[in-house]
Write a protein that binds this DNA or RNA. Structure first.
Lengths: 131, 131
DNA sequence: TATAAATATAACTATATAATAACTCATACC
DNA sequence: GGTATGAGTTATTATATAGTTATATTTATA
């Protein structure tokens, strides 16, 4: 599947030398998509502080059980969290503490750039203090 | 809008004390959604190495110009990149070098967890070497 | 083995995002 | 002013994700 593109100087050359959209990029995209949901972010921010059962998450978030389970599926599919049975319960935990670091860097980016209203900034700062 | 949830011990209590889905979380979700696309990730990985015109991005990616512009809109809307006119060209750059750090952490997470095929791992390692 | 509790899945509708192609806008230069 | 070039927008259809409610699965225990 060779494609030809037009360069700035009007010359035509083969696009083979070009950065192809590798599988890795799609994979990373999927990963970030798994983070791209308010509830899933909340779940991760809770799990950073330690493992939780579905029940505990459900109560902490004030959401119905199926909603929590559904969001956990998404995180599990990307190997972001791991599930472990504990009798009748299932305890979820981060697979990698680096997830916490990722969220931290994201928070720093938000803080730096005022990409938000004053109100949100206040929330962010409260969050950082809790850290 | 008070909601009532059922706890594990069958007691009903008010969900008011619960972590509400703040605007911040939605905001973060939007941010990650902006990263959740293979082309946009590629663009960012190029911009980490320095500013580029649309033209240069287009050539590096081997994609049509409107596609590149569309993806840049998404990144601009989240204030992830900034555009600057240079005569007939528009040069794009990261708004915050921390974006690079974010991608690095993400890469580490992938590497750690074999969340990918052997082939993808090889690609990741090649990427890290170029880093 | 019947039951209840905890979790997971399914089925459906609504909504958002992606992909593609055609078109418009802006600027430099003749 | 006309034109070519770089960038941006719009419109359309396809596809994926979200939200909601109902139902199924699993396990402990009476």
């Amino acid at each position: 599947m060779k494609r030809v593109i037009r360069t700035s100087f009007g010359i035509r050359r083969n696009a083979g030398a070009v950065m192809a959209t590798s599988h890795v990029q799609s994979f990373k995209a999927q990963f970030f998509r798994a983070l791209a949901h308010p509830v899933r972010i909340q779940i991760l921010e809770i799990l950073v502080r330690g493992g939780r059962t579905v029940q505990e998450l459900q109560e902490a978030l004030g959401l119905e059980q199926p909603i929590v389970s559904q969001q956990l599926v998404v995180l599990r599919n990307q190997s972001i969290v791991a599930a472990e049975k504990e009798g009748l319960f299932v305890r979820y935990a981060l697979r990698d503490p680096l997830i916490g670091q990722l969220l931290d860097v994201a928070r720093q980016i938000f803080n730096n750039h005022l990409m938000s209203t004053r109100g949100m900034l206040r929330e962010l700062q409260r969050e950082a203090r809790r850290g």
